[in-house]
């Protein structure tokens, strides 16, 4: 119920602060954004999605993945928060490999060179496949807004979880020494077990994907 009120309030804020010209311009700005951040309930991966692999070859996520759950983690090579959380992402990727879970890193910066991404993958010792979401279609479709942010899909490509990796970052400049909760891990475990995820959405802290348009 509280969540519902918050959404209503959100709408009001847009009306109060957004100027007419912004609404007309289609609004690439940080104050109002209708697509991003929408609820994950009943959200599903669209049938077609313009994704490429690091070599620039089209990549069909649905075709390529036949595990029981599918996980994507949005990253950006120059985002210190997504880098700081790399070890946990790496560990989860390794830990769930044998559990029929497909793990993907999704780079969101369209300007980055393939070479820079390869170097980044090497430096941070990632072993999971990397994709590129050049037009932010996947981010928009899942409502992810920052890097790092994770989305867990069930076998049917319904969004089961979207949000933070863990609670190490509480807010801007507010960082725990180490995380005390591990939401992504919990979500994957629940999805694999066919359990409902108690909190299907959490607030991820990181660098805005939207800035990269």
């Amino acid at each position: 119920m509280r969540r519902f009120h918050a959404r209503l309030l959100f709408g009001v804020v847009i009306l109060l602060t957004g100027s007419f010209s912004e609404l007309l311009s289609g609004g690439r700005n940080c104050f109002a954004d209708e697509t991003h951040g929408s609820s994950v309930r009943d959200m599903k991966l669209p049938a077609t999605m313009d994704l490429v692999d690091v070599d620039g070859q089209p990549f069909d996520l649905r075709k390529a993945s036949n595990g029981r759950v599918h996980i994507v983690v949005f990253v950006r090579s120059d985002c210190p928060i997504s880098n700081k959380l790399a070890p946990e992402v790496r560990e989860l990727c390794t830990a769930f490999k044998s559990h029929d879970a497909d793990f993907y890193l999704v780079y969101v910066d369209p300007r980055e060179s393939a070479e820079a991404i390869r170097t980044h993958l090497h430096d941070y010792e990632y072993t999971c496949p990397a994709l590129r979401d050049m037009k932010h279609e996947l981010a928009m479709a899942t409502g992810a807004t920052v890097t790092p942010e994770a989305v867990v899909f069930d076998h049917d490509w319904k969004v089961a979880y979207r949000g933070r990796i863990n609670n190490q970052f509480e807010d801007i400049g507010k960082c725990r020494d180490k995380a005390t909760t591990h939401e992504l891990r919990d979500a994957i475990e629940a999805a694999l077990a066919g359990r409902t995820i108690a909190e299907p959405e959490t607030k991820a802290i990181g660098c805005y994907i939207d800035d990269l348009k």
């Binding site: 959100f10 940080c30 991003h36 880098n83 409502g143 942010e149 959405e201 991820a204």
Partner: peptide, 27 residues
């Protein structure tokens, strides 16, 4: 610990607009 820390995300629970509205001086 470096910069590493930023943002607000886009869950409906708190929006960027709200966060900004909270911290901004009056319109």
């Amino acid at each position: 610990t470096a910069w590493a820390g930023c943002s607000t995300s886009g869950t409906p629970i708190t929006s960027k607009a709200e966060a900004a509205a909270d911290t901004l001086p009056a319109a």
